[in-house]
Design a protein around this nucleic acid. Structure first.
Lengths: 192, 192
DNA sequence: CGCGACGTTGATTTGCCTCAACGATTGTGG
DNA sequence: CCACAATCGTTGAGGCAAATCAACGTCGCG
């Protein structure tokens, strides 16, 4: 079995147990995809019919506002899932764009395959229930962070929580994630 | 069958189909609870071992910061679920408090019962997968709203999205939800 | 080499907060 | 049923955190 399959099966094994047959079926619906630095995985305005699992590399999902400013919704690295959840769910055009910060490799699951998967192996309902539950908690905390903390506190939380992203992501995109201008982040860092 | 059971079974029927037996089993694990206005349903620091379904009334979940300020995480009304998801998940003491804005009635499901339920009727994995997926999307949009919009735009989004809450919730708590002071919300409203 | 992406720094502006005072409404105990 | 406190919204003066705008240095890369 290919190494990449092992990786994603290990990831899944953290949540549910699969038989050999199930593993095989699951791997058969995965589509391998490479994205080079600065290339789009998802483009705002287009449909987003895939859930994407990151094998390697680093990507960002962001909203582009009317003034052309990027607002980063989330990053993704090895073993994370990334998509425009709303567009995937509804079939509407994506409001987020996703592109690669580093050359990346992914597995994609198409929406229709995903629905079949839930039907064929209901254990995946459980896995994604747990994943979404966790993601929900993370987003909730991020909302509260914005409501209750200053820019400096949000920055400190970020580097504490995601020390590896701090290394791999350009500073102006971290600024965007925590909700300040690049200039202001630079000034904050000088004071630390 | 009691009217309240009908209500929650209707709610569930939007996501999954249950047999009579399953309905009965499900209802048997529900605990009915009344909370009067201003009373706690969950208190920060205490464990939160329940998922709570709102039969009637209106509640708020909020984080109390070190300076004693309330930051509202979310509201809940008829047919919504409310809990401290992180505390429920991990067993840690709650960081959120939840109390009633109006006299309310709820059904509670205890954590251990919830786990049994997932085991006995895996369809509930599906239902909560869908619910968490939706909640995740909602939180995601709220984060982006904070990153990309001004206070006035956040207020307008709020009253558009939740016109009924606008009626039932005191203005200072709406201010807290959108992340401004009550004074500033008052000033914004004068300009509309 | 030269260009574009990225970070820094400073001067100025602004959106929102803080604090304080004051009415209107609600609720509660005597 | 009234008196009083507590809660809630409003208004104004002043202050601060963070944005804006502009200029400049550095690095990596085609």
């Amino acid at each position: 079995m290919k190494k990449d399959y092992k990786q994603i099966l290990n990831h899944i094994a953290k949540f549910i147990e699969l038989t050999k047959d199930e593993q095989e079926y699951f791997c058969s619906i995965l589509k391998h995809k490479k994205v080079r630095r600065k290339q789009f995985l998802v483009e705002a305005g287009e449909p987003c019919n895939y859930e994407n699992y990151v094998i390697s590399g680093c990507l960002k999902a962001y909203y582009l506002d009317n003034n052309g400013f990027e607002h980063i919704s989330h990053f993704a690295m090895e073993d994370w899932w990334i998509s425009d959840a709303y567009a995937f769910l509804t079939g509407e055009p994506a409001t987020l764009s996703i592109d690669a910060i580093e050359d990346s490799e992914l597995f994609r699951i198409e929406k229709t395959e995903m629905e079949k998967l839930y039907f064929q192996i209901p254990k995946f309902e459980r896995m994604f229930r747990i994943l979404f539950q966790n993601s929900f908690v993370v987003k909730q905390r991020r909302v509260l962070l914005h409501l209750s903390q200053s820019a400096k506190e949000r920055y400190l939380s970020f580097i504490e929580k995601y020390p590896s992203l701090e290394q791999r992501v350009p500073q102006n995109q971290i600024a965007s994630y925590i909700g300040v201008t690049p200039e202001f982040l630079s000034k904050m860092k000088k004071e630390l």
